[in-house]
Simulated assay, not measured.
Amino acid sequence: MTMNDHQWLMNSQALNSLRKLRKRLQAEFGLNLRFSDFDFEQQLAQVKSRTVDSDTRKLIAQLETLKGSPFLTGDEPPERLYRGQKILQEPGKKNIYEMIYGEELALHDGRGATIAPRKMYRGHPVLN
């Protein structure tokens, strides 16, 4: 879904929630939220983290549910993709290499001490 796709607004429940939310945001922040503004979703994302009103948070959560995705400020880091698919990473979890190698990770990812390569011939080490 693109930032300019506002099809989710064509729902009467979304419009009613937005009308209620406009009044609350005007009272709390002095913000005139216009549905025609191209960045009103970014404004909602910024307000979501700053508001102290629990009803405002509930209304924003309802709108995110109707939209099908959270409102983004645009400052979020880009998604990590592998072959076009999102990389699933649980918060607070180490990546697979850290889990396997632990403290020895530096030795296995090229940052550790280098060892002179051994000369091999047909799978057997060559003596100098």
Rank of each mutant, 00 (worst) to 15 (best):
K48G: 02
G112M: 00
Q7T: 15
P91S: 05
G123S: 15
I60R: 03
T114C: 10
P70K: 09
I100Y: 00
R24V: 00
D55E: 10
R57D: 02
N11K: 14
N11A: 15
D53C: 12
T56V: 05
K23H: 15
K48M: 01
T73W: 10
E64M: 06
G123I: 02
N32E: 12
E41I: 09
Q85K: 14
Q89K: 11
P70H: 08
D39F: 10
K67N: 07
D37S: 13
L33Y: 13
P70D: 15
V126S: 14
N4L: 07
L33V: 08
E79R: 07
L15M: 04
Q26W: 11
P70R: 09
T2G: 10
Q46Y: 03
A113I: 01
L59H: 11
M120V: 14
L15Q: 01
F29G: 12
Q62C: 01
G30H: 08
T114Y: 04
G30M: 06
R57K: 04
S54C: 03
S54L: 00
L72G: 01
D55F: 07
R22G: 03
L31E: 09
D37Q: 13
F29D: 04
R50A: 09
Y121D: 06
L66M: 13
A106E: 03
Y101R: 01
Q62A: 03
R80D: 04
I60F: 13
K119Q: 13
Q26E: 04
N32S: 10
E79P: 09
H124T: 12
M3W: 09
L81W: 14
P125Q: 09
A106K: 08
P70T: 06
L59F: 07
S49T: 08
F35R: 12
Q46E: 13
M1G: 03
P91K: 09
T2Y: 07
K23E: 10
G68E: 07
M1P: 01
L63E: 15
L25M: 08
W8C: 10
L81T: 06
L59N: 06
F71C: 09
I115K: 15
L15R: 05
E76G: 14
R19N: 11
N11C: 07
L105V: 00
P125H: 12
R118E: 14
G123W: 04
R118S: 12
R57M: 10
F29T: 02
T73D: 02
S69T: 05
N32I: 04
E79T: 12
L72Y: 00
T73S: 10
E103T: 06
L105C: 06
L127Y: 03
E103Y: 02
K23L: 13
L31K: 11
F38W: 12
E103D: 09
T65A: 14
L105W: 08
A116W: 03
E104I: 02
D55G: 12
G92M: 01
H108G: 03
I115G: 11
R80Y: 11
Q46C: 11
L63Q: 14
D37M: 06
K20V: 05
Q89A: 01
T65N: 05
G102P: 02
T73L: 11
N128C: 00
L127C: 08
H6A: 13
